[in-house]
């Protein structure tokens, strides 16, 4: 799949933002006044900034409100609802902390649940894709949720939580690679099943339908950069999870925590780039590109 920067930025940043909102909603940290204002600003910049980035790849962003209508079947529509409800609920909760120095527990818990629900809906947009076997398994939501919780805990300065959750997220990432590398073969979709000609012999793409490229090849048959996948996997794992945990174990200071957050973000970006770049859409089979 084409690794569109807008979608990589969106999933990485908003996951982090909603993770931070989750821990704040549960009351793991309940600052008041200006400190609360600073934390909520960071969380909203990440979550809303990510959502705005995701509209950049739309053909018609001005019609985005229509995306709220099909929540019965569409995970993207559900994501729209969950994110807006989470942001509104957490804004109410934040107002209590910032202006009234009062922690209103009910909107807090509700907002935390909605924040996690938002990350789940994002993950399900990818998980539901039977056409991309690498995504169509439980490791995708496991990765999105554990990333969000670990990154949120790190941003919230929850050292103990983060030292537990970061390794869990790292394991989820490795599991996604291990399961994902075999997923296409396990799906049973091949050029033989795609053409229905498999029982007659070995099928080979002889001639593509066109001499130039097209939307399908640009969007679904991304092959550039796969040769760097092992290097990027090492970077993602070390920078995103191993190094931040080592830094947290070394002792807490604000400067060190900032370094840990930045390293984590680099790792998340690298892993999200791989999430798209390595994903094989079955339509590539028709072009003999798998």
């Amino acid at each position: 799949m084409h690794p569109a920067p807008s979608v990589i930025i969106f999933t990485s940043l908003s996951g982090l933002g909603f993770g931070l909102l989750f821990w704040m909603g549960l009351g793991f940290l309940a600052p008041t006044g200006w400190v609360a204002f600073a934390f909520f600003t960071i969380a909203y910049l990440l979550a809303v900034g990510g959502l705005l980035a995701s509209t950049f790849h739309l053909g018609h962003p001005e019609r985005a409100l229509k995306a709220f209508t099909q929540w019965r079947t569409s995970w993207l529509s559900r994501e729209a609802w969950a994110s807006v409800l989470a942001l509104v609920t957490m804004a109410l909760y934040g107002a209590g902390l910032v202006f009234f120095a009062n922690r209103w527990a009910v909107p807090g818990y509700l907002g935390a649940a909605l924040s996690l629900a938002t990350v789940t809906t994002t993950a399900m947009i990818y998980t539901q894709m039977r056409t991309v076997p690498r995504w169509h398994n439980a490791t995708t939501p496991a990765m999105y949720l554990s990333f969000s919780l670990a990154g949120g805990a790190l941003l919230a300065g929850q050292v103990t939580l983060a030292t537990w959750l970061l390794p869990i997220a790292g394991v989820a990432l490795v599991a996604h690679w291990v399961v994902g590398d075999k997923a296409l073969a396990r799906s049973g979709t091949t050029l033989a099943s795609a053409t229905g000609l498999g029982d007659r012999g070995t099928v080979r793409s002889f001639e593509p339908p066109h001499t130039g490229t097209n939307y399908l090849l640009r969007e679904f048959v991304h092959v550039v950069g796969r040769k760097h996948s092992l290097t990027l996997r090492v970077i993602a794992l070390l920078s995103g999870f191993v190094l931040p945990v080592l830094i947290l174990l070394a002792g807490f200071s604000h400067a060190l925590a900032a370094v840990a957050v930045l390293l984590h973000l680099v790792g998340v970006f690298a892993s999200r780039w791989l999430f798209f770049a390595e994903a094989e859409h079955v339509v590539g089979l028709y072009y003999g590109k798998r």
């Binding site: 739309l58 018609h60 962003p61 056409t131 979709t189 679904f220 339509v283």
Partner: peptide
Amino acid sequence: SDCIGCGLCAWACPYG
């Protein structure tokens, strides 16, 4: 006139 051009339907189609 209702399409926002998100591309998700093309992702979901195995046939291109």
